[in-house]
């Protein structure tokens, strides 16, 4: 399948060079800018100033790769609506336009309309605008969006995806490996928190990220939540060919090797390894669970039929019990894998 892969920037110029030298399957690199102007909804390894953005843009373009700036704060505390906020954002976007970045991703509807009206940079609706219906997609297209990253919660709702495709003419993108909980209850609060941490000051200085803790605890206790997460397996990209050919790989906080492994998997539309290797989040669980990706061949047929009412379906629960393994004594000479269903409900050994 011919496709366009949007790939995260590794956070530094040397890394960018290494990535573009190592893979010819990258259509566009995406990166966050400086958090001092507009924040971003996720953690980044680098905070590029305008000079750096210019350098990276020039390098990408010299390699026939596009560059996308991700300014997708889900909460700006209302600053975007103040005169000072408008002036600052306008100044920043003007600079990005002069630099020649190819696209700008934002989550706030106001910024979508403002950028579409006042600049010549195609504006992309972030996944953090949570476009999960044809009505919402139409609304954002009317505001001036040239592309929409669809809310990954509906990645397996083919009826919704098809309705969105029918309703709008703009480009659609699917985020393939976010790995977040399906219908995550922490989603809005967590991204708002990230937006402030990765946005203009004042930035909260917190000891523990409650939402991330809870996300891990839920999955450690019930790994079927990993399967219910609406990721798209590399093998299943072809199922989406009638929706789009544009796919975004998440992973702005990962190392180059990790990103390249994902690029190769999605470019090849096949991955023979641990599904957790491909999930952007939560990356810590890679040291706990082994879920053989190839054991999920054919699961898409079930997910197409049943992807909304988990308690009446039970497929992911049964499947995870069948295939999930847990590392025992990971990192030692005694390391081994045991079936997940053999360790549950064992209780105290006396």
């Amino acid at each position: 399948m011919n496709k366009k892969l949007y790939v995260p920037h590794p956070g530094h110029f040397d890394g960018l060079q290494q990535m573009l030298e190592s893979s010819k399957d990258i259509y566009s690199i995406y990166m966050a800018g400086s958090p001092d102007y507009i924040g971003t909804g996720r953690v980044n390894l680098g905070h590029a100033g305008l000079e750096e953005v210019a350098r990276h843009t020039e390098y990408c373009h010299s390699n026939n790769v596009k560059i996308e700036m991700v300014l997708n704060s889900s909460c700006m505390g209302g600053q975007q609506l103040t005169t000072e906020g408008y002036n600052l954002i306008h100044w920043y976007i003007s600079n990005l336009e002069d630099i020649g970045v190819d696209t700008v991703v934002v989550a706030d509807p106001y910024l979508i309309e403002m950028i579409a009206n006042e600049f010549n940079i195609p504006v992309v609706v972030s996944v953090l605008a949570f476009v999960d219906s044809s009505q919402k997609a139409e609304f954002f297209e009317q505001l001036g969006a040239s592309s929409i990253v669809i809310d990954s919660n509906v990645n397996r709702h083919f009826d919704v995806l098809e309705a969105i495709r029918d309703a709008v003419d703009c480009e659609l993108k699917l985020l393939v490996n976010e790995g977040c909980l399906y219908r995550c209850p922490f989603r809005y609060a967590h991204f708002n928190f990230f937006s402030h941490v990765n946005g203009p000051p004042p930035r909260p200085n917190v000891q523990d990220d409650y939402y991330y803790h809870k996300c891990l605890t839920l999955r450690i206790n019930d790994p079927s939540l990993i399967l219910k997460s609406p990721f798209i397996r590399p093998e299943d990209l072809k199922e989406y060919a009638h929706i789009t050919d544009v796919f975004k790989i998440g992973g702005r906080s990962h190392f180059i090797n990790w990103i390249l492994n994902c690029v190769n998997a999605y470019a090849d539309e096949s991955y023979d390894g641990n599904l957790m290797d491909l999930m952007d989040c939560p990356k810590d669980l890679i040291d706990l669970f082994n879920i053989p990706n190839k054991a999920l061949d054919g699961a898409i047929e079930q997910w197409k039929k049943h992807s909304t009412v988990c308690h009446t379906c039970g497929y992911c629960q049964r499947k995870i019990s069948e295939i999930a393994q847990v590392y025992d004594h990971k990192g030692t000479i005694d390391e081994k894998l045991v079936q997940w269903n053999t360790i549950t409900n064992k209780g105290i050994e006396t």
Partner: peptide, 24 residues
Amino acid sequence: PEELLKTRADLEDGIKRLIGRAVM
């Protein structure tokens, strides 16, 4: 280092056995 790695793994394994489910 290998002793520290084993100590981490032993603690994780001990808690896992105690509560009857995975833990990290």
